[in-house]
């Protein structure tokens, strides 16, 4: 298994591969969005503008499926950022890997790791294949959901911990904690497993090419599904906490 390069500065560990991956993903997302929304036009949209508008409509309808239509607008930017960033992050680790061989202890490689001669340092990965990153995203969602719940739906937000009966309070607490945890773990596990399998297939050498093709294709599919899932679950949680529906069941 590969090691990831860890740079220690004043006793603080920095996972360089994760930082590189996050930075590249974010920059890529921004540049792509910026390129696709160049030369906007009302009457004569370009192909790229049409694509972006399709994406906006898609996210809009996705969010609208979880909450009343008139509440969608403030979350549209968040939903788009989430789905674009996570989708690009999921795909980032697929096309190639950068691995360096280390023969002496450095960047978090200990003497034990190179006992067999050398250690492999993986510099390139999907940021979402790192639990730290997905848990960061989940924390943002968690804070947002509960902030919106307390601000916009105060009474029902606090009441819902004791629904349907006060005895359900511990269950509700567990549910509340489980939501962001599963959000983070689901995304991380799917993408991480995908990359593990890719590195495993790589060990097969030339014979693994058809498997690689199949799995790369499937990973793109999984990446899209997970990005969509993260986005829609975020919106469902926001809707549950912040929007009170008189006959809503939660």
């Amino acid at each position: 298994m590969h090691k990831f390069p860890i740079y220690t500065w004043n006793g603080i560990d920095f996972d360089l591969s994760a930082i590189i991956a996050i930075t590249i993903s974010a920059i890529l997302t921004f540049v792509l969005a910026r390129l696709l929304t160049r030369k906007l036009s009302v009457a004569n949209p370009s192909k790229t503008q049409n694509f972006m508008e399709w994406a906006v409509d898609f996210v809009h309808s996705t969010i609208a499926s979880t909450m009343p239509l008139n509440r969608v607008r403030p979350f549209l930017g968040l939903g788009l950022t989430l789905i674009l960033f996570i989708f690009i992050s999921n795909l980032l680790g697929l096309p190639f890997g950068i691995v360096t061989y280390v023969h002496e202890p450095m960047l978090g490689i200990t003497a034990d790791d190179i006992a067999h001669g050398h250690a492999e340092l993986a510099w390139w990965k999907s940021p979402t294949a790192d639990l730290s990153v997905t848990s960061g995203l989940a924390l943002i969602v968690f804070l947002l959901v509960h902030f919106l719940g307390m601000k916009q739906n105060t009474k029902h937000y606090f009441q819902h911990y004791f629904k349907p009966y006060p005895i359900f309070f511990p269950l509700n607490i567990i549910e509340t904690i489980a939501k962001p945890v599963t959000l983070a773990l689901r995304l991380f596990a799917n993408i991480f497993a995908g990359e593990v399998l890719i590195s495993t297939i790589l060990m097969l050498g030339v014979i693994g090419t058809p498997f690689m093709i199949a799995w790369q294709g499937f990973s793109i599919f999984v990446g899209a599904i997970q990005a969509f899932l993260f986005t829609i679950l975020t919106m469902v949680y926001i809707s549950q906490a912040a929007i009170h529906d008189d006959d809503g069941a939660h």
């Binding site: 921004f30 790192d130 848990s135 960061g136």
Partner: peptide, 24 residues
């Protein structure tokens, strides 16, 4: 790694702000 964790949050928030401001 909490550094990656914090960095991811910061990066995402900056990305969100930039995208909203300049693209969306």
């Amino acid at each position: 790694k909490w550094t990656s964790f914090v960095y991811a949050i910061v990066a995402f928030l900056i990305l969100y702000w930039l995208l909203n401001r300049y693209a969306f």
